[in-house]
């Protein structure tokens, strides 16, 4: 089963709009419209971290959403990747200097892919997700590998005792 790699063909996303101008937010939604139709790639917007593989965040981190972003990330089952969309999500963007902005998403959770742009274009976003897929696949391989090693170790321990 581990070699089948369905993950790449069925990335479900969770989209969270942090401290943004909503420009990128709208672009993300544009991806779901018939014009761009990301379901072609098996992408579904789940709206639920427990079902999601890819966390797409637009906008930067402020004091109020810091805990939320971390919580959403923690609620996603492994393997998972984070895509930061737009300059705000990367660094805080034009809001960077605001008193309440801590910076980009990577201030709180590890980010795997940065999609540049203000706002990021749908094509770019899709490219970002595609880039995220190979990282996702890598993580999965690592995860099953780790599980394998752990399993072997347990068996070895079981046999020796």
């Amino acid at each position: 089963m581990s070699t089948m790699a369905f993950l790449k063909r069925s990335p479900w996303i969770l989209h969270y709009d942090a401290s943004s101008c909503n420009g990128c937010d709208i672009e993300v939604l544009a991806c779901l419209t018939p014009l761009y139709d990301v379901e072609r790639f098996g992408i579904i917007n789940t709206g639920n971290p427990k079902h999601a593989d890819i966390l797409m965040i637009t906008g930067g981190i402020n004091e109020l959403n810091r805990a939320v972003v971390r919580n959403l990330y923690e609620q996603m089952p492994e393997p998972k990747v984070v895509v930061a969309i737009g300059i705000c999500a990367a660094t805080g963007g034009i809001f960077r200097e605001c008193y309440n902005i801590a910076g980009g998403v990577d201030k709180v959770i590890p980010v795997d892919v940065y999609v540049p742009g203000c706002a990021a274009r749908p094509e770019m976003i899709i490219d970002g997700v595609v880039a995220a897929l190979s990282i996702l696949e890598e993580k999965r391989a690592k995860m099953t590998g780790a599980a394998q090693i752990k399993d072997d170790a347990r068996h070895a321990a079981g046999e020796s005792t």
Partner: peptide, 11 residues
Amino acid sequence: FYDVGKLFEKE
């Protein structure tokens, strides 16, 4: 099928 296969791969 991809979806279900994927779900089985998850943690």
